[in-house]
């Protein structure tokens, strides 16, 4: 698993890991049942604190994206979309609000902001096809 971490940024390292794993899963680079490297291996490879990696994995497990088998490693969950729709929307709303606020401050037209999000969705689909993912 390829992670790009920037420890000096204001974003906590555990959040950087969470966001990248989420991105890999959303883009299909990681599919249901795929194994993730152990906390110890990620920490050693990235030269970061194992507690930080463990925290990211725990949060991803809580969010239903990963599942861990006691003593047997961590895997991408079979059904990472298992949350209620209302809960999914509740989690996404802050990001939608941020895009709306930033876009408006930059004086973009509402349609231009919507187009931007659509382009990002399309690029995810392209990435999904490129890895030949059949899980979704």
């Amino acid at each position: 698993m390829l992670l790009h971490l920037n420890p000096a940024s204001g974003v906590p390292i555990y959040l950087q890991i969470e966001n990248q794993v989420k991105h890999y899963v959303a883009a299909g680079a990681l599919g249901p049942g795929d194994a993730l490297p152990s906390v110890r291996k990620v920490a050693a490879d990235m030269r970061i604190n194992p507690n930080t990696v463990a925290r990211a994995y725990q949060n991803l497990e809580r969010d239903g994206i990963l599942r861990s088998v006691p003593g047997g490693g961590t895997y991408v969950a079979e059904n990472p979309g298992g949350l209620l729709k209302s809960e999914k929307i509740r989690r996404l709303r802050p990001y939608a609000r941020q895009i709306a606020v930033e876009g408006t401050q930059l004086r973009l037209e509402p349609q231009e902001i919507v187009n931007l999000v659509e382009q990002e969705l399309e690029s995810l689909e392209v990435a999904d096809e490129r890895v030949g993912n059949s899980h979704r």
Partner: peptide
């Protein structure tokens, strides 16, 4: 750093 991450903290 690797030693600290893997052998000590790990």
């Amino acid at each position: 750093q690797r030693v600290v991450a893997e052998d000590l903290a790990g």
